[in-house]
């Protein structure tokens, strides 16, 4: 989500990876970003200029972002070629790096920063092309990080719920592993993070919180109907938290990043053993017959 700190998270992932001497590459997919918090190996802004698209196609900011992404997605095979080339780099070539910087060795991780307007990526053909090319065509273990802003969510249970519904929608849309990354832990008192955790762990407390909103007539329907609705909603989301890993981090201070890397490892493992990749492989074998 916009303002949840995606770029700072990518920047923190990058700095932690290099500290741990894990080779990585970082890519920027946001055509409208002004200053990038990390050094990108590939940057959509080098290929397409957001402001020129606005001028040339006479588009507003939204249309320009979508068009830039579409143009980029149409060329995504070249990104894939680049990744393949990087992955097959020989160790010998990488050891030439005088500084001993692990960056140029075949990457263990590739981080993608996505546009601020989340639906430009999630509800567009181009976002689908990017994720499907990585996950299905190239079969790279691909994991979605859904970054959420703790301070905004803890203030309002409905904001929290809308975000979780959206995260859940992402899981269904992509069918690849998803990690919920609660960011900006440094900005809230410990109690607040605990409060979020209790909403996720204990559906009774979440249900009670939601019902308070029912009384304030915030949820349509009103009366008994909405009480039962908040209960089914709490139950459904509760199951979602059981199945989807979730970590609390601060991209700003670096707190919790180890647990994020651990979650990444197990999610990539889950990807390898998923029904999704099994079906992808099966489809490939049957179509090559």
């Amino acid at each position: 989500m916009a303002g949840s700190g995606k770029s700072s998270l990518v920047s923190r992932l990058v700095s932690q990876a290099s500290e741990k001497r894990w080779p990585y590459r970082a890519m920027n997919l946001d055509p409208a970003v002004r200053t990038l918090a990390f050094t990108a190996d590939l940057d959509i802004r080098d290929t397409v200029s957001y402001s020129r698209i606005m001028e040339e196609y006479r588009l507003g900011p939204n249309g320009a972002i979508l068009t830039a992404l579409n143009l980029f997605a149409a060329q995504f095979e070249r990104v894939l070629e680049y990744i393949e080339q990087e992955c097959t780099r020989t160790e010998a070539a990488s050891s030439e790096d005088k500084s001993g910087h692990p960056r140029r060795a075949p990457p263990r991780y590739i981080f993608f920063d996505t546009p601020g307007q989340i639906e430009a990526f999630t509800w567009s053909a181009s976002g689908m092309i990017v994720t499907e090319t990585l996950a299905a065509a190239a079969e790279y273990p691909t994991v979605l990080l859904f970054v959420v802003d703790i301070p905004r969510c803890v203030r309002n249970v409905l904001t929290f719920t809308s975000n979780m519904l959206y995260a859940c929608s992402m899981l269904y849309r992509s069918r690849i592993p998803l990690i919920i990354v609660w960011n900006k832990q440094d900005c809230v008192p410990v109690d607040d993070a605990a409060r979020l955790e209790s909403w996720m762990r204990d559906f009774e407390s979440f249900d009670a919180e939601l019902e308070q909103y029912d009384e304030a007539a915030r949820i349509p329907g009103g009366g008994d109907y909405s009480v039962s609705f908040s209960r089914s909603l709490a139950l459904a989301l509760n199951e979602f938290y059981h199945q989807v890993p979730c970590v609390f981090v601060s991209a700003h201070t670096g707190e919790g990043m180890d647990s994020l890397f651990e979650a990444l490892e197990s999610a990539s493992d889950a990807f390898e053993h998923s029904e999704y990749i099994r079906q992808v492989r099966e489809a490939k074998t049957s179509s090559s017959d």
């Binding site: 509800w123 809308s162 975000n163 519904l165 959206y166 929608s169 349509p220």
Partner: peptide
């Protein structure tokens, strides 16, 4: 399911 959940997020909000 993905579409319905997105719609539901807006509705609830």
């Amino acid at each position: 399911f993905a579409g319905s959940l997105t719609a539901m997020a807006a509705m609830l909000h």
